[in-house]
Structures are given as C-alpha cells and as structure tokens.
Write a protein that binds this DNA or RNA. Sequence first.
DNA 1: ACCTGAACACCGTTCAAGT
DNA 2: ACCTGAACACCGTTCAAGT
Lengths: 195, 195
Amino acid sequence: MPAKRPPVPLSRERIIEAALHIADTQGLRRLTMRRLGDALQVEAMAVYHHLPRGKEALMDALAEHVTAVHVEPGGSWQDGARAWCRASRAALREHPGVLALALTKPPKGRGAIALREQTDQLAEAGLPDAAGAVRALRAYVFGAVAVEVQRSGWAEPAGEDGEPWLPPSRGGGSPDADADFELGLTALLTGLAAR
Amino acid sequence: MPAKRPPVPLSRERIIEAALHIADTQGLRRLTMRRLGDALQVEAMAVYHHLPRGKEALMDALAEHVTAVHVEPGGSWQDGARAWCRASRAALREHPGVLALALTKPPKGRGAIALREQTDQLAEAGLPDAAGAVRALRAYVFGAVAVEVQRSGWAEPAGEDGEPWLPPSRGGGSPDADADFELGLTALLTGLAAR
DNA sequence: ACCTGAACACCGTTCAAGT
DNA sequence: ACCTGAACACCGTTCAAGT
C-alpha cells in the first residue's frame, strides 16, 4: 500500500517543472493552484509554503526560468551574441505556454542577472554599446519566437476540448524557420557592427 | 432621477473599449466579466449577448482590435512597409495591457485580413517575397514593442496596491526608443531588399 | 518544518425569467 | 431583443490546525 504523503518532498524546482508542464500542455489559463497541487499529489495550499507570494510568485518564477539564459564567454562578440540568441530562442520555444509571460514581464532575479552578464560579456569582447546591443538582440529573439509560435498554431482551441498539444517538431524548428532566424540574426549583427 | 437602464445600449464596440481601458489601467488579470459589467453599468451576463463565446471571444476581440492595422497603398514597397510598421507599433503601444494577447494569439478575423492586405500591397508594389517580408516586419515590430513596454515598467505592481498606471509619455515614445525603432527598421528594409 | 481542511470572497458561465 | 437574478462549479488566498 502506497504512502499517502508524496514520496519526494515538494520543492521550488518540482513546482516550477510541473507548472511549466501544465502551461505548455493545457495553456496558461488552465494553470491553476489547485491543478498544480493535483499534479504534485499535494493540496494546492502546500505550494504557498515554497512560493510565499503565491500565484504571482509562480508567474515570475516561470518567466525567469525561460528567460535566464547563459552561454560561455569565449570568441568574438559576434560569436557570443549569436550563441546567446540561439540559446534564448531555444529556451523560449521549449515552453510556448509561458511565452506571454516571458515577453511581457520585466526581467527580475536570475533573468535580470543573466541580462547583465551577457551585456558584460559583449562589452568585454569589445562591443562599444553592449547595453543597446543586448536590447536589440532581445527584441530580435522575442519577435522571431512570437511569430514562430503563433504560426505553429499553439494557443489555439487544441482541437475540440482541451486535448493536449504536440510540439511543432522534435529537437528544433522547421528548417525554414531556422534559416530565417539565422539570416535575420546575421543581418542584425552586421548592423550592430556598423554602429 | 436617472434611468436605471444604461442610457446608451450595449454594443460590441463599447464593450471592447471598456475592456481595453480596464486592461491598460489595471492589468489583464483584473479584466473580469463582472468588473467589465460594472464599468458598463450593466450586469456581467449582459456581455454574453454581444460576445456569445464569452471571455474567450472578448480576448480574441481585444487582440484583433490592437492588431488589425491598415495603411494607404501608395509609394514604394519600402514606404508602405515603413508606414505599416510605424502604425503597428503605435497600435500596440497604445494598449500595453493586451500586448501579451497580441503577441501570442494567432491572427484571426480582421487581424488576419489586415495581414493579407498588407502582403498584397507589398507584392503589388514590387516586392518578391511579400509573405516572408510581412513575417519579418511583424517579428521586428513585436520584438521592439515587447522590449519597449517591458522597459517602460508597465505590468509591474503599479506602486502599492493596484493604483493606476501612467502611460510612458504623451503622444509617442521616448525619443531614443523612436530613434532605435527607425534605425532597426531601416536596416531591416535594406536587408529585405537584398534578398 | 511542512502539509491539510475549512472557510471566504471572487470568478466564468448556464438558464430560466423578466421587460 | 436585450437584460437580470439566482445558481453552479471553480478559483486564489487566509488561517488555524494537524503531524
């Protein structure tokens, strides 16, 4: 006979993981404290012990999770910028259910830190206006992913009534979306170099 | 003594207008059928008569409102594209409360029509891959506005407890945001011409 | 320290009923 | 045709209580 209490205790990580799964799978509007509790085999109120500000804290944590991207420093600033943009795109695409939060919530916590880190790395690699560049790169990635995810048909009725959604394709994007992204990214880097 | 019934009858337009005001002013999460009813001096249930699919239809209508942008056809395709991007940016900036919907919901209804119209206008003006161009332009505008609105501090606690929010600045953006937008737009148009 | 149960105010939506 | 009132299932959050 199984124990009534969850075998592994609750944690911030497990809560976020479960929340991401619900959002990606059923949509943000169906991510509910009670449903989240169910998924974790716990009463909804247990979540408040790990995320004291409740649902608002959960939303912040989700945006942070998908937005706090790091890459190794080496190489030219172009290499660094390219790697960071690719990684950011991948992170956002992986969790379309919380894209609205990522595009909309101002960076906080680990997300804000990652931003400063990337700015420093680009400056270190010799780029003059690193802050402006990070702004432009972020805007590029945001726009590209927003259009990609819109076109992927995510966020639509999901068939008749809440049946789960299949990710657009395994391990990356459709080849033309990838090519578009790389093309625009190269153009943007050229533009930034000419500033 | 005032009449109990609203002097001017409910309509789709008035509902959308009131909903935009609530979303821009208090945030999307506080846009509630009941609050919407209050703002319109009507019971919440009256809204369903004008938007049969209820809140889902309301969300669609809001995204549509802020997304269905038209400009006059004349001039080079560059002129047309530039005008359309400026108008789209202005429309999105005007209603930061529903930006998440606009960036996230696939175009439907008048929004989808406006997209086709703009594609046709660019093709008519001599641009080879007009569909790809509209995709790129849309991505550019989306990303730019997302970063702008994030930086404007909208969507934050709004002070202590739900006090209203002041638009970033009257009649347009901060001058450097405008300059950044124009700079990137010019670069993008150059890139599209070289395809 | 960590989780539960009951409670409260609020939410979306339905449906029959009013005018 | 247009709106209301009452009702239902569900939601976020609190708080005292259990272990």
